[in-house]
Nucleic acid binder design. Structure first.
Lengths: 178, 178
DNA sequence: TCATCCATGTAAAAAGTTACATGATTTT
DNA sequence: AAAATCATGTAACTTTTTACATGGATGA
């Protein structure tokens, strides 16, 4: 289950609570999970049982206690092994719009142009939101030159995926009239 | 549930059995489901209960009986409504590799290049398989000029998504050494 | 005052995949 | 002789999401 490796990877940057993890996952689109409690707290429990993380409970006055999880040496080794040795899966896509387009046999040209424009708008909106979220996370990344570059590349990957889709929409719109 | 609309859309091209749907879904990557029996047969039952499809059972000698499902007038209307009026969701993707790359802080340049190459290979393999599957489906598409164009665009969408990823890999490889 | 933040966890439901079950026919 | 195709369906399982539960502090 790669979700557990994802949270192990986040814990490799710094020790964190489940709540911290939740916020990061919810704000990061490259972590394509919802960041729900169920997976996070069960995942952390599992990682602890496997000896990949340790936890210390910190009691606070006026706030609930927090469990701070720290990656162990074993955890670091396992994470490294996962990154280097696990099969590199090709990306997976869900494009509901392609299904709708495939069913568009009964539609006339104007109607197809209309749904293409709706699709375009939804992607443009998504790009705006993603860009804003990514901009806000810039401060979190470490100062190392290499890590900054990697983070920049991840951002460009996400944006280019959406822009590729926008280019494709223009192509369809240009081709469909002829 | 958009899965049910997807099978309704397939039934709009011609009447089919659950088994026919299964084969089409398994061979089509733009239909991003596995095409398992559970969803198909339950989906068909649900569509029938909603009055969107009708079925006739055809008994065959030496082969199991088949239930041929046909879209109803109501079904056609609902499908059209779904295509025109449903919100056009932006594409969603799962890129496990980006998570692995994000965790690569402890790796040296050579190791990052290695995992990039593995990712590249998996995508190239995927493109080869997809291209072959798409080529085989060409015969199935209807003869209408518009529908041929739409089908061509769907194919190009899928391939361009993977090629965009390949371009990105080259960019990362070129940038990481400097 | 009402919503949000902090913080942990559980319960239930939905969505999706794999495997099971049957059985004749055809292909390798 | 073994495997695949045709054909329908169910059972069990995994994965993922949504909602529930608690409760003080803070902000609009």
């Amino acid at each position: 289950m790669s979700f557990n490796y994802a949270i192990l990877g986040l814990l490799n940057t710094r020790p964190m609570t489940g709540y911290d993890l939740k916020k990061i996952i919810q704000k990061s689109s490259y972590l394509y999970w919802s960041g729900n409690n169920n997976q996070i707290y069960k995942g952390l429990l599992h990682l602890q049982n496997e000896g990949l993380v340790t936890s210390q409970t910190e009691h606070q006055e006026g706030s609930p206690s927090k469990k701070i999880y720290t990656i162990s040496e074993n955890g670091k080794q396992q994470l490294r092994k996962w990154i280097l040795e696990s099969p590199k899966e090709p990306p997976e896509f869900k494009k509901e719009f392609l299904i709708q387009l495939a069913c568009s046999g009964d539609l006339d040209f104007d109607e197809i142009i209309t749904i293409l424009n709706h699709y375009k708008e939804s992607i443009e909106m998504k790009i705006i939101m993603e860009t804003e979220l990514l901009r806000r996370q810039d401060g979190l990344s470490s100062a190392s030159k290499k890590e900054k570059f990697i983070w920049q590349m991840i951002k460009e990957n996400l944006i280019s995926t959406y822009e590729n889709e926008l280019d494709w929409i223009e192509k369809v719109k240009n081709g469909i009239g002829k």
